[in-house]
Each structure stands twice: as structure tokens, then as C-alpha cells.
Design a protein around this nucleic acid. Structure first.
Lengths: 355, 355
DNA sequence: TTGAAAGCGGTACCAT
DNA sequence: ATGGTACCGCTTTCAA
């Protein structure tokens, strides 16, 4: 177990096989210009002595840098800025391996992504990270990159029908479940409501499903009395909230499955004296901190945007440098954030850089 | 921002300064045998062109492997096996950098650590990771390693008076706070109790403090009616629990700040019909899973032992390869684990390996 | 004090 | 089809 025996190198293989290191390289990398016999012999030897290539050395000899391109939205700063930051810092940590960032922005999710991707298709990049807004339009574009041998990883949103390598995100269904379980435990009455951005959005629908299932499973006589859409508009969110309060005077909890929860908080903070409504929200940004501390928000489910960007880079790096194929989804854990662990995640959870 | 300009190398510095790369190396590493004038000149140039050494290349030239030694307990398998696993896999991921593990075990925390460390002092190791049991006895030993220029990182427990580089752990006070806040939100009555292993243990005492403060702050008329010690003995834990139930028929919650919570669960599961007691526990292992699913345990605070081992390795690696000094404490986030996010952490949370 | 050169473990390209 | 060798960026040793 405590082995520090020297790792075998191509030289070892070469001398064992009685050939040059050039030939060994040919055999190992399936290059042409080598006798199938010798290749087989070399591969057998390599296998036998447990050869594994030294990535450090092989990277050192790479002449062209690896360029990792990214396309992220600007709007919803609190979220995508963190994704971008994670992306950049992950690359920064890989600088010794000659990895460089090439970052593009679109105004908001789904706005002009095609243009940027078209432009990127001309550039000489080695990998692509993006948050696809319009899947149906983007799928063919994504596939074009893949066909050019440029792996693509989606972040936070997905384009599952495309040939992207993997998707880094928090499983929305699980996220909903966690919210449902938590609210079921906190709530003092059986009736709760859900607010989403839009039920058209797959992510939001899945959160609703996960929440509903978990809440009903955990709460003996629980009931989800309403699912309302705020279409990411503050006034509508406020209006919806007031309506909920009026319509269900005994409402015991609300789960806001989209990031736009501030309007809800405002309404609840004002009406606070009359109702005892437990609020579970999604994501984390500045305006929420006070509401968390004041107890208007009981807990929020954090999706770790910084880490999403970070992980995307590392998945791609591993794929490019050692052909390691990731599973089709790379799910991060949703995190229950309350007052006492807020500091870990706000203003921004800096993953301690590994290596 | 999108720079892929080639990073400057010592060669660049050399030609700019009109010296050989050997001299540049001497200047950069403060080696002897160089004119202070030239050194200064070289350092200025390096600074000006923003030189940063390529760790990949420098590691490649290292002839001797780095040996990372570890001493972990065997008992409390569910916890220390994960720490060990994290330690090993982190090193595995660094194998291209010629890092090798040297793992020793002691039977349980504080049992015979001195012997093992004495033995290790003779060996040619480059770094040491351990879970110090008896601090007072271990401090001088730890310092001996440090004085031999072998950095030491403590994991999960600490030896703060020693010269260890840093300690990787979950801040027990924060852990307690999180428990307190959570229980305050879940509980249906004001009176709760705490069970620890022993109040002699700093870690447990801090959890008690953190819990108490947070619970009282969050719960308007909350009251911590008892703090009992189970001395990590099942019978005692069971006995204590029964006593609590008898003495405080209105008990609304229990926080078990030590890992030994199964006995408590058993008692509560039996008495379940009479009392509505919310239970928050610590750590996660097999026997707890059922109790979580049945709702006997409301939530448990996971301390991510796997990641603790992993992080220790990477902190040491960074320290050794780039002199990066970590802060005196490396706190990991305590994680709220309930049914719906259990899968991420059990049987064992495998951090997706980065790079 | 300084320079030159070998070598780490691969890759790439030339020559044979 | 195969061998030889320069080179990536740095460390280390040996000469000068």
C-alpha cells in the first residue's frame, strides 16, 4: 500500500521491448506507421508493467495552448457573475497546463447566443462552456462544435438533445424535493403554495414536482393549494403573494422556486404580524441576506454557481487530457442555507482551490 | 482578458538580463553563489515581465518523490475510513506529481499515536496528516516534525498549540449554531436538550455553545433544559434519553452533538407515539439512514470526512510546491442532510475529482 | 560568481 | 516500419 516504487516510463517499455521510445509512442497512441505485431507486443508489455502516462510531462510538450471558450449571460448578475468567476478561476488554476479563457457574454439567457456561437465557430478553440437559453435553436450549433471535435459542457441550464459532453447543474427535481422536505418540517399548518417563474420552464416544473412529492410524503395532511407564476416580474410576484394571503388566510408556507423572491419577501415582511408563513427560496444574493437574517426567509436553496463554472472547466480538462468521459449529468448538491451558514456562500462561496 | 500570450519563462528572463538560465534560477530561489547586483537585476526583470514559475515543469525535474504520511484511527470506521479514503484518493490524483501515500493506523483516537509518530520521525517523509487525539502529549512530537521541515496538517481534530501548518475541520461552534437554528425552526415547543460525548472535549463544548446561542436567538422563548453526557456509551445514551423523556414530558427537541446517536434514535423510535421530539444529529453512517427515512432523525449535520482528508493533502501539496501558506484554520461547511439529499453524502460523498 | 549541459517523461519530426 | 533527437520549462551538477 505504501508504494513509492518509480512509475514505469516509456523508456522502460522501450528497453523491455527492445525498440525506441518513438515506436512506443506510436504503439501507445495508435498512430500509423507501426507493425501491428510490435504494437501488440508493446501494448502487452505496457499493460504488464502497469504503465500509465505522466500527464505532467505530456502537457509540457504541448505546443499550442488549450483555449476554453465560455458564453454566459450578464443579467442575473448575482448568479452568472459567479459562474463566470468560477470558470475563470478554474482556468487560472490550470495556467501551468497552458489553458486560457476566452469569455463572451450575452445580455441575458437566450439573448443572442446564436450570434456569439456563430462567431466562436470561426475561432480556434478547444472547448466550450455555455448556459444554453434556447435549446431548440442551439442544439444544431452545439452539435457543430462537437463535430469539430470541440467538447461542449452546459452549465446550470441544459441542452439534453444536443451532443454536449455533459451538463453541470443542480438537479431541479431534487432541489424541489429538498425544499418540500424542509418546508414540511418547518411549517405549522398543512397548506402551502409554490411560486415559479413559469411552468413552461422545464426546470421550474421539475422543482414543482419534486417539491410536491416530497412535501406530501413528509406532511401527513399537507396540501399544495396553489402554483403561481410570477414571470420574473416583481409587481406580479407581489400581487400574486397578496392574493395568496387573501385567498388562503391559513397559508403556512411558500416555496419560491425561482430566484425572484424579493417581492415575496417584501409583502410577507409587511404582513408579518398577521400570518405565520414559512418561506423557502432559491439561490442567494444581496437583497436576500437581510430577509434571511430577519427570519422572513427560513432557508434558501443555494445552487453554487461558482462551483458550477469551476467544475465545467475541470471536466473539460480531464476529458481533453486523459479522455475521461463524464456521465451525462454532473449534478451538484443543493445546499440548505440559513443564517448560521450564510458566510460560506455569500457574497460568494470561493471553493478553496485544489492544486 | 482573453490572453493567450505565452507565459514568460526563465529563458526570457535570462536573455533579457544577458545571463544564463542557471543564474536566473539562483536569483529566483535565493540560492547562494550569485552577485547581489545581478540577483537584484534579475528579480526586477522577472517582476517586470510578470514571471511566474511553471509548476508542471519544476515538478517534473524533482528526482525524489514526495511522501505524504498519514496517521488515522481505525475505530469509528464510518468516519475515519472516509477521511483515509479522501486522503488516498487526493494523493492518487497527484500521482503524476510524484506524490505517494504512507498510511499508518492507530486503533482509535488517542490510542498509541505517540508510538506511530516516533516511528515516523525516523522515516523520510515530506508531509504529515493526522487526527491528534491527545494534544498535550502530541504537541512536542508534532513540533519535532515541523522543525525537521515536515509540515503537519491536523484533520477533524486539532492541536492548536502546536506548530501544525493548519487544521482542516468543521468549525464546531458553527456546527452547533446551524443545529440550533435548524432545531429552533422545526421544533413545536420551547424546551430542548443537548447530548454530547463529554463536556471535557473542546469540540463538544463548542457545539453546545454554538447551539445554545443560536437556538435561544432564534426561538423567542426557547430553553435548553439539559446538557447530558453519554461518554460514547450506548447504554448510557439510552438511559440518558429515557431520563430526559421522563423528566421533561414536554421536551420538544434533542441535539446530539456527538456521533453516537443510534441509542437515542432507538429510544425515541419506541416512545414515538407519546412524544413529538425533533432530533438533530451529527455525522452520517449506515444505522442512521433508516432513522432519517423514518423521520426519527429530522436532519443530521454532515462533516464531510472524505473531503477533510482530501483537502489536507491538497493544502500540503500547495504548500510544498508553491510555498502557499494556508490560514491557521481551514473550515469546511457543515451540511444539513435530510432524506432528499442523503444520496449525495451516503454511503460516502465522493467529491468529483478535480484534475 | 557564472555558464553549460544533462535530465525529468513525454511529443513530434526528421532521418533511415 | 523504426530509430534518433530536439524540445517543453525547470532543477541540478559540473566546469570554468
Amino acid at each position: 500500500m505504501n508504494d513509492h516504487k518509480r512509475r514505469p516510463t516509456i523508456k522502460d517499455i522501450a528497453s523491455l521491448a527492445g525498440v525506441s521510445i518513438g515506436t512506443v509512442d506510436r504503439a501507445l497512441h495508435n498512430r500509423r506507421g507501426i507493425d501491428p505485431q510490435t504494437r501488440q507486443r508493446i501494448l502487452t508489455i505496457a499493460e504488464k508493467i502497469g504503465y500509465r502516462k505522466n500527464r505532467v510531462a505530456s502537457i509540457l510538450t504541448r505546443k499550442k495552448p488549450l483555449v476554453f471558450a465560455a458564453v454566459f449571460p450578464q443579467k442575473l448578475h448575482y448568479f452568472y457573475d459567479d459562474v463566470r468567476q468560477g470558470f475563470k478561476e478554474a482556468i487560472e488554476a490550470l495556467q501551468d497546463f497552458k489553458v486560457y479563457p476566452l469569455v463572451y457574454s450575452v445580455e441575458s439567457l437566450g439573448q443572442g447566443e446564436e450570434n456569439v456561437l456563430q462567431k466562436l465557430l470561426q475561432e480556434d478553440i478547444d472547448a466550450l462552456v455555455l448556459t444554453p437559453g434556447h435549446r431548440s435553436k442551439l442544439n444544431p450549433l452545439i452539435n457543430q462544435f462537437v463535430e469539430k471535435n470541440i467538447p461542449v459542457v452546459t452549465v446550470s441550464t441544459d441542452a439534453p438533445e444536443s451532443k454536449r459532453l455533459t451538463s453541470v447543474c443542480v438537479n431541479p427535481y431534487q432541489n424541489g424535493e429538498l425544499a418540500g422536505e424542509l418546508l414540511a418540517k418547518i411549517v405549522t399548518g398543512p397548506r402551502v403554495a409554490i411560486m415559479v417563474g413559469s411552468l413552461e420552464i422545464e426546470d421550474h416544473r421539475q422543482k414543482v414536482d419534486g417539491f410536491t412529492n416530497a412535501f406530501l410524503a413528509m406532511h401527513p395532511d399537507g396540501e399544495v393549494v396553489a402554483v403561481v407564476e410570477n414571470h420574473e416580474r416583481e409587481e406580479l410576484a407581489a400581487q400574486n403573494t397578496e392574493e395568496l394571503l387573501r385567498k388562503y388566510p391559513d397559508l403556512a408556507g411558500i416555496y419560491v422556486a425561482t430566484a425572484n423572491s424579493v417581492a415575496v419577501c417584501k409583502v410577507l415582511a409587511e404582513q408579518h404580524t398577521n400570518h405565520d408563513i414559512k418561506l423557502i427560496t432559491t439561490d442567494l444574493f444581496e437583497e436576500m441576506v437581510d430577509y434571511l437574517k430577519k427570519g422572513v426567509i427560513q432557508a434558501t436553496l443555494f445552487q453554487n454557481p461558482y462551483r458550477q463554472g469551476w467544475e465545467a472547466v475541470n471536466i473539460l480538462f480531464q476529458f481533453l487530457t486523459e479522455k475521461r468521459k463524464p456521465p451525462t449529468h454532473h449534478y451538484l448538491e443543493p445546499v440548505v442555507v440559513m443564517c448560521s451558514n450564510l458566510d460560506f456562500y455569500y457574497p460568494q462561496f470561493k471553493r478553496r482551490v485544489l492544486k
